[in-house]
Simulated scan of single mutants.
Amino acid sequence: MAKIIMSPSKYIQGNGELKKLYAHTANLGTTFLVLATEGGMKRIKHIVEESFKDQSKKLVFEIFNKECSKEEINRLIEICKSNGCDAVIGIGGGKLLDTAKAVSYYEKMPVVIVPTIASTDAPCSALSVLYTPEGVFDQYLVLPKNPEMVLMDTDIIAKAPARLLVAGMGDALATYFEARACDISKATNMAGLLPAKSAYALAQLCYETLLEEGLKAKLALENKVVTPAVENIIEANTYLSGIGFESGGLAAAHAIHNGFTVLKECHHLYHGEKVAFGTLVQLVMENCSMEEIEEVIQFCKSIELPITLGQMGVKEVKPKEIMEVAKASCAEGETIYNMPFEVTAESVYAAILTADAIGKRYL
């Protein structure tokens, strides 16, 4: 079987790059749908307008309705059609960016991804994760291409709460372990082909960067400053993890994240916070050494990622509810079946409770 590595056409990272948006995107379209949240629009609209000032391009600004759902995607498609948009710029967080990519796919037009946070590995991928309007995982929408451009303005990202960068590290934490599981099982990646060796190398570099730079970056962002560690973690969260997960493959950690979306107690958590605990559960499923499990736990503790169900918001552990999480993690088509051994809801249930018990020993 052929191997593949996938990436955006351009990845640009630097201080103040949003001010150069016109220069970066001028060749991509004539009428741009610019998607942002209500709060994000207040912060970035004037920057985008200033960048396009005195140019012949048209900007259509629209506020994102919180969930990357089929309903929201269809709403935005109608706005694109009524305004003659031929390109879309998504400025914001993971669900908004996934929505911009989905609109781009259905309308067959270029997409520019401008994260205002580094909280997930979604920006670089040819993938949109769809949810119901209530926030429950719905499906993966695998796209035929990666974004034309990913633009990371580190000055804007540094102004976001440090918790968001930490959540991105939780998402990135799974990259190496899931790629490793896929490498052992010879599972295909998100493109349906085998991972290239370079994808596995990027996944390893992602993990090494997290361990080396994670705490330093968190402390810097808590003081609203950009240091080399912050730059390195932004790249790890966004590019290394993005290429690593998409081209290296997903396994148990992200499937377990999807399982936890059925619990209302966990809806306050960011994607990467649930993925971090899912990573710990995956390591238990693999019966990894305590040395490796402890390395992951100590990293999570250092940057305040959850290592127990209690820290996830599950104050009372009810076996029936945890089994529902396990069953959802094992839904048909889930990436958990990329693990190099048989997986059942019962084995996931056991791993969740064991991971919780191990985590409690380090509190």
Score class of each variant (00 low, 15 high):
Ala236Phe: 02
Pro161Ser: 11
Glu291Ile: 11
Ala326Ile: 01
Ile303Phe: 02
Ser241His: 04
Glu292His: 12
Ile5Met: 15
Asp356Leu: 00
Val150Gln: 14
Ala167Asn: 15
Ala203Asp: 06
Glu213Asp: 09
Lys327Arg: 09
Met339Thr: 00
Ile157Leu: 13
Gly242Cys: 08
Ser69Asn: 13
Gly242Glu: 07
Ala201Phe: 13
Glu246Ala: 04
Leu240Gly: 00
Gly248Asp: 03
His271Met: 06
Ile157Lys: 15
Asn237Ser: 03
His254Lys: 08
Ala100Ser: 12
Pro8Asp: 11
Leu363Cys: 00
Thr132His: 06
Asn83Gln: 11
Gly84Asp: 09
Ile336Phe: 01
Phe32Ile: 04
Ser7Ile: 14
Val48Glu: 11
Met290Glu: 11
Phe52Met: 13
Asn258Pro: 02
Lys315Met: 13
Glu332Ser: 03
Ala126Val: 09
Phe260Arg: 02
Thr308Glu: 05
Glu213Pro: 01
Tyr140Phe: 15
Asp138Gln: 14
Ile243Asn: 06
Ser82Gln: 10
Thr344Ser: 01
Ser185Ala: 15
Phe245Ala: 02
Gly94His: 03
Gly244Gln: 03
Tyr200Cys: 05
Ala2Trp: 13
Glu178Tyr: 13
Glu235Ala: 02
Lys301Tyr: 02
Met339Ile: 02
Thr175Ser: 09
Glu148Ala: 10
Glu292Arg: 14
Met312Phe: 07
Ala181Arg: 07
Glu213Gln: 10
Gln298Ile: 13
Phe137Pro: 05
Val226Cys: 05
Ser7Tyr: 15
Lys95Ile: 07
Glu291Gly: 03
Glu291Pro: 05
Ala100Gly: 02
Leu202Asn: 05
Thr31Trp: 06
Leu219His: 09
Lys145Ile: 14
Ser7Asp: 06
Ala126Ile: 10
Leu28Tyr: 14
Met190Gly: 02
Lys108Cys: 03
Tyr349Lys: 00
Arg361Val: 00
Glu321Trp: 03
Ala26Trp: 07
Gly192Phe: 08
Pro195Ser: 12
Lys320Glu: 06
Ala357Gln: 00
Ala355Gln: 00
Glu17Phe: 07
Gly29Thr: 10
Ala122Phe: 09
Glu304Leu: 09
Leu194Phe: 08
Gly29Pro: 05
Ala23Glu: 15
Ser9Leu: 15
Lys95Cys: 01
Leu127Thr: 04
Thr99Ala: 05
Cys206Leu: 12
Tyr22Leu: 08
Glu291Ser: 14
Gly170Val: 12
Glu273Val: 06
Thr188Phe: 11
Val48Gln: 12
Lys159His: 15
Lys224Phe: 09
Ala199Gln: 12
Leu205Ile: 11
Glu78Cys: 09
Lys360Phe: 00
Glu38Arg: 14
Ala191Trp: 10
Asn189Cys: 08
Pro161Cys: 15
Ser185Met: 10
Tyr270Trp: 12
Ile89Trp: 08
Ile79Cys: 06
Gly168Ser: 10
Ala191Pro: 01
Asn189Pro: 05
Ile293Gly: 07
Val262Ser: 04
Ile157Tyr: 08
His271Ala: 09
Thr120Phe: 02
Pro110Ser: 04
Asp138Pro: 09
Met190Cys: 06
Thr279Gln: 10
Leu28Thr: 02
Leu28Arg: 14
Gly192Cys: 10
Phe299Ile: 05
Met285His: 04
